[in-house]
């Protein structure tokens, strides 16, 4: 897969809400694109992203092929405290998995 880039995640607490920003390294091939030789690139895209705060699952993002390459997401969590652990796990359509975690700062 040659994923040189890493998944990145930041979480910041500000005025009683936690902002989570997430950047995943993934090509997100839809299965309709072609390479230089004109051959179809098989579909390869993230389908399911889950987010935990400490031990609570807070958000599920399900993606179709229309999510952009190297997907970016940003969302807010109500409340939170310094030191909370935010964990992300993703799975793509061919079964590749990834995880990222950060501490709220």
């Amino acid at each position: 897969m040659g994923l040189a880039a890493k998944d990145r995640i930041r979480a910041k607490l500000k005025e009683d809400e936690t902002t989570v920003r997430l950047l995943l390294a993934h090509p997100m091939h839809t299965g309709r694109g072609k390479n230089e030789a004109g051959e179809l690139i098989p579909a390869e895209y993230i389908q399911d992203i889950r987010c935990w705060r400490n031990d609570d699952e807070v958000l599920t993002i399900k993606c179709g092929t229309a999510t952009a390459r190297n997907p970016y997401f940003s969302f807010q969590l109500v409340g939170g405290a310094l030191g909370d652990k935010i964990t992300i796990r993703w799975v793509d359509n061919i079964g590749a998995k990834g995880t990222a975690e950060t501490i709220v700062g």
Binding site: I61, F75, Q76
Partner: peptide, 18 residues
């Protein structure tokens, strides 16, 4: 995209699409 929310999540939600 389809997002399943819990009460712990707040908008705005930002992302990039094709």
């Amino acid at each position: 995209m389809s997002l399943d929310f819990t009460p712990a999540v707040k908008l705005p939600f930002k992302s990039m699409i094709k």
